[in-house]
């Protein structure tokens, strides 16, 4: 019997699950680092943008424009292949594939999250900040106690979309052969030629993964949302 003519999901999974699971583990690890990093980058640079902190605000703006206006595939290639090249004063820096993997998706997510948080912070009505200033809070304390908790909640729905996109973007790490889920699945496919099974399983796993992530964060959103919008 020829290999690959029969569609047998059960034996595909039972033969390859361990290998695919390792890939899934790397997908989760890289996503978790990148989402955590994007959260911090977004909150810090979003605050700098919203409050027009000199220098940092302009640098953040340049960063956001650079990332939003280039394909993430080019960004991944750039970090992996261009960064190690010494050019002029640049000595060339070679990063290992794991570092490029999380860094690339984190930088991408951080740029989009900067815009999410900037919009959230700017949407906080002035009167709440004025209320805090009048009680004696300084500017930084007003940000931490009022603008951050209120604006962060306003930014939550759009930042969820960014986190989901970060997770899905990890599939592109295939191009630098980082052995996350998609790369692992393609390796299985190359060995077994069970193409239909490979992409059925791959699609199903991503579906389950993204769906649980968004359900999880939406649950969190429900608890964190401003009381009047619950």
């Amino acid at each position: 019997m020829l290999v690959g003519i029969t569609y047998d999901l059960g034996s595909y999974v039972s033969e390859n699950w361990e290998f695919l699971l390792r890939g899934l583990g790397r997908t989760l690890l890289v996503s978790a680092i990148a989402i955590g990093g994007a959260l911090v980058i977004g909150a810090v640079l979003g605050a700098a943008r919203a409050h027009r902190v000199p220098v940092i605000s302009q640098l953040a703006s340049a960063y956001v424009e650079l990332i939003r206006n280039t394909p993430i595939l080019v960004q991944i290639f750039f970090l992996y292949f261009a960064l190690p090249q010494p050019i002029g004063p640049w000595p060339g820096v070679r990063l290992d594939v794991f570092t490029v993997a999380w860094l690339a998706v984190m930088i991408w997510g951080g740029a989009f999250n900067t815009e999410n948080f900037r919009a959230g912070f700017e949407a906080v009505p002035w009167r709440f900040r004025e209320g805090a200033l009048a009680l004696g809070f300084g500017r930084v304390a007003t940000f931490l106690n009022v603008t951050l908790p209120i604006g962060g909640r306003i930014a939550l729905p759009s930042s969820i979309n960014t986190y989901i996109a970060v997770l899905k973007n990890t599939a592109l790490l295939y191009v630098i052969s980082y052995e996350e889920l998609t790369t692992s699945a393609l390796q299985v496919n190359a060995l077994t030629l069970e193409t239909a099974e490979t992409f059925t399983v791959l699609g199903a796993v991503y579906l389950a993964l993204v769906w649980s992530l968004s359900a999880g964060i939406r649950g969190l959103e429900g608890r964190l949302a401003l009381p009047e919008s619950r």
């Binding site: 009167r127 004025e130 209320g131």
Partner: peptide, 13 residues
């Protein structure tokens, strides 16, 4: 100096 505003300005969260 305490101040009370027309729009209350209570923290909604």
């Amino acid at each position: 100096i305490g101040i009370v505003f027309q729009q209350f300005n209570l923290f909604p969260h």
